[in-house]
């Protein structure tokens, strides 16, 4: 089970061309990046892993995760996960039409209050919705029903993540939605895990980029007459960032393999999100420290990675949520089952 290198190569070329430092800066200033999205959508990448008969691009979940890893690596300011493996997945699984434009989903906050009445009319609000302002549809799962809600009828209150990416509040007042029954196994929990997996892939890419950037910067930057990478105290940061890059990518790919096989991959995804969240915290600290004041400016590209990591590490569950989930699994396994759980 592996990813066709054509996907990696094509996506890499695309992002290298479009996600330049200035283009990402501009996207943050504008609150959207329609040009980057158009180029991305042109390739069919947003709909990878969704079946072709449902209007998707085909391919596997692992393919989709590889694209997300590269979205994270290049800090591409686009709702790739939302349109494909999250929102698109919900719609396709219920046989609802995939729109041509952006689909988004609500990651879920304590103050979300969306309700769908018997006629399919949606009311209430959802918060911190990625690219709500640019989306055509909001995909929602609740109480055995999947709804595709047109955003033309929503009130959008713009907000941002720590990375300056759109995270909007969407308010609906009796907006007519298309609904369909959710197939078995697709529920709020399933979306939560899938959302977590998408963030692990994004984080794996971002940490890897940050790690490489830091190795290269510290080899160019000279102080006391030599590259700062020659100092052991700086090398420590390089090593820690490289470890976290490896750890997050391994977590993403291992959890992805389990999920791809359509088995119950909840343990792997929960463990992966926890591990990646912590890796994001450690690696951003190490890479910022190694960059000194250079990393504290928006003129330099480190912040594209580090600020996204601070956003993604909390989205779809932080360390405590996933510690509690994995911990319950560990307690359930008991002392004799603990190592078999880790090696399952």
């Amino acid at each position: 089970m592996s990813v066709d290198s054509l996907i990696t190569d094509t996506a890499t070329r695309l992002f290298e061309q479009h996600c330049t430092h200035s283009a990402i800066q501009q996207a943050e200033a504008d609150g959207e990046a329609p040009g980057i999205w158009a180029a991305f959508a042109e390739t069919g990448f947003p709909w990878i892993s969704l079946p072709e008969e449902a209007g998707g691009s085909g391919g596997t979940l692992l393919d989709a995760l590889e694209v997300l890893r590269l979205v994270g690596y290049h800090a591409a300011p686009i709702p790739a996960a939302e349109t494909g493996m999250l929102g698109g997945w919900l719609l396709a699984s219920a046989g609802l039409e995939l729109p041509e434009g952006i689909v988004t989903v609500a990651p879920g906050t304590d103050t979300d209050s969306l309700t769908v009445d018997a006629t399919g009319a949606v009311s209430g609000a959802v918060h911190m919705v990625p690219w709500g302002r640019a989306a055509e549809r909001l995909a929602v799962i609740a109480d055995g029903t999947i709804a595709s809600i047109p955003l033309a009828g929503a009130t959008v209150e713009p907000g941002t993540s720590l990375a300056g990416e759109p995270r909007d509040t969407l308010t609906f007042d009796s907006v007519a939605a298309e609904t369909a029954p959710a197939p078995g196994g697709i529920d709020v929990e399933a979306l939560r895990f899938r959302g977590a997996l998408s963030r692990v892939a994004l984080m794996a890419g971002a940490i890897e980029k940050m790690s490489r950037l830091t190795v290269s910067y510290t080899n160019e930057r000279e102080q006391f007459g030599r590259p700062v990478a020659r100092f052991q105290a700086v090398q420590q940061h390089l090593v820690w960032a490289a470890q976290d890059a490896a750890l997050a990518r391994m977590a993403a790919e291992t959890a992805g393999r389990h999920a791809e096989r359509d088995e119950d991959a909840r343990f792997e995804i929960a463990a992966a999100k926890l591990v990646a969240n912590q890796a994001a915290t450690r690696a951003t600290k190490a890479c910022h420290q190694a960059h000194g004041a250079m990393g504290m400016t928006q003129e330099y590209e480190l912040h594209h990675s580090s600020r996204r990591l601070w956003s993604w590490r909390s989205e779809y569950g932080g360390v405590r949520e996933w510690s509690a989930w994995v911990g319950a699994a560990a307690v359930d396994a008991g002392a004799d089952g603990l190592y078999p759980l880790i090696t399952r």
Partner: peptide, 9 residues
């Protein structure tokens, strides 16, 4: 529970 969870992961 969270301790076991973190260490296990």
């Amino acid at each position: 529970v969270e301790l076991f969870g973190e260490l296990t992961a």
